[in-house]
Amino acid sequence: MIVENTAELPEIIFPSPREILFQRTLRHKGFIIGAAILALILAVALLAPVLAPHDPYHQDLAHQMQNPVWHADGTWRHPLGTDNLGRDYLSRLMFGARISLLIGISAMLISGLIGTTLGVAAGYFGGRTDMIISFLITTRLSMPVVLVALAVVALIGGSLTVIIWVLGFLIWDRFAVVMRSSTQQLRGIEYVSAAKAIGCSTPHILIIEIIPNILNNLIVVATLEVAHAILLEAALSFLGMGVQPPLPSWGLMIAEGKEFMLFTPWVIAIPGVVLSLLVLAINLMGDGIRDITAPEGHS
């Protein structure tokens, strides 16, 4: 039978690639959970001056080490209690989120710029360039990050800017490794050869043909490196050679609470749990993006 009126045929709607991506995102539980936690922490960090019930630097020596609200003697005036100087713990926690995120994102941007430049150059040009850059990556990997960061920050003096730059200059290795191998895979692909054949300039090929196609991998590494930088900052601050008091860094809060932890474990548990949650959320998102953008290749 010949169908005369094609309008009678059931219409098949193909979802656009963007819709498929969106559907996959919604179905990925890890990504959704990570994104929700991160959005919450991000909102608190941005709105800290509005949300915080007290000034995070205000010392109230009459109300030191008050217990959080879930203890019998806790009050809603200080929902998470106060520290050994009588500062409101919740307010310090909220302002601490700003420091973690600021350092994490800034250090990631610096290391991302260094690592991506090196990785793309090594992967695209190959040969001697690749040899030299691979050598740089190996050298960097051989240097113990915590030890070197600690020594340099201690010698220069801990401040937010110093920590950001030191971490930024130390953790570009994963960017370089991943971008190098992603670019290598693209180098021989038809559309890159075609662009070369019609005489496109090297910067044109790199920016128009290569970068957009390694963007997914770049985003995954960038996400994981934010978490890496946040953990390193916390470790430096915990060891007393990162963010300096009275700034409310979570690592520093754990260090300050350490001597009281045997009697009141919550002083380290609260910043520790929040720090772990933040890193967990970022990692979940990074893994999620990898699964969503490359569903066939995950192991």
Partner: peptide, 18 residues
């Protein structure tokens, strides 16, 4: 493994101590 990657080592160490 996911939790292991998220928890800072010094915090995990302190929890073990407590």
């Amino acid at each position: 493994s996911v939790i292991g990657q998220a928890m800072p080592s010094f915090f995990f160490g302190l929890i073990l101590i407590i």
